Amino acid sequence: MAVDIEMNLKDVQEKIQKAVVKADRNLQEVQLIAVTKTVEPEAMERAIELGVTHVGENKVQELTRKYEIIGDKVKWHMIGHLQKNKVKYIIDKVALIHSLDSYELADEIDKRAKQIGQVMQCLLQVNVSGEESKYGVEPKDVDELLHRISLLKHIEIVGLMTMAPYTDEPEEVRVFFKKLKQLSNDIKEKKIHNIKMHYLSMGMSNDFEVAIEEGASLVRIGSKIFGERNY
């Protein structure tokens, strides 16, 4: 059965609106990122026609392949784990890297951004759930890492990202979104040079409403728009 992207997108936007109202927030504070993992360019083009302006890719190879077709019609987000040796392929294509998780990666992004005369905006990925299967910096190591990264000239940390454990019960992961929000507030208070806390990237198809209630500004939604993944 064909996926009705228009209907799905409308449904997601209505749910975002409801969550924003419930949290007494402003709709302008929440940006939908359509996650296009395993989604072909034709379906992406349809979503763009329907008003999608930001897309997120998990794999560098997929991002570069689709970028060749779609180009600058949307803002591209790198949301998956990023290896140092792949930075050079996306540095001139993405608006935001969500998955910065080490000083070594920050250093490489800084070097590549310098080569093209840009400052690359990044989010620090934090493993607030402590799951071994998840990438991200441990909360206790965030402070030291941010101080080191703050000295780099061509990279700017503009917020935090996390991935909550997968569950059918969104309430179970609320605690992790609260923790990321608290961490963001703590960092803000420290006023570290060159470190900003504009964004919280948290919440996916199964838990984005709870994430919005807890302060998410970037929600990464794939299957609720494009249908269940076909691996």
Rank of each mutant, 00 (worst) to 15 (best):
T38L: 12
V219K: 02
T36V: 14
I192L: 14
S201P: 04
N230C: 11
V175P: 03
I69L: 15
F177A: 02
D4W: 09
K10F: 09
L50Q: 03
E131W: 02
H81N: 13
D143S: 13
K153V: 08
K111F: 05
N127F: 05
V142M: 06
E214D: 07
Q182F: 10
E228H: 11
I157P: 02
S184N: 08
R46W: 04
K88T: 06
T38Y: 12
N230S: 12
I157G: 00
V20H: 08
Y67C: 05
H98E: 04
V30D: 02
I149N: 00
A34K: 03
D24S: 15
D4G: 09
S102I: 09
G215D: 01
A164C: 12
L27G: 09
N206E: 08
A106G: 05
E138N: 14
E14D: 13
Q61Y: 08
A164T: 10
L50E: 00
L146R: 03
K93S: 03
E108K: 15
I79R: 04
V142P: 01
N230Y: 10
E209G: 05
Q28K: 15
K179D: 05
E14Q: 14
D207G: 09
L32F: 12
P41H: 08
F208W: 07
Y166C: 11
G159H: 03
R46Y: 04
G117M: 09
A19E: 00
E172Y: 07
Q182T: 12
T53V: 13
L63F: 03
E108T: 12
P165W: 07
K88P: 00
I192P: 01
E171M: 13
V87K: 02
V210Q: 03
T64A: 07
K134N: 00
R25E: 02
T36F: 07
A113V: 09
N230M: 13
A95N: 12
M7N: 12
L218F: 13
G56P: 03
S99P: 00
R174W: 11
P41A: 09
S223K: 09
V39Q: 05
P170C: 10
R112F: 02
D4N: 15
G203Q: 00
M202I: 12
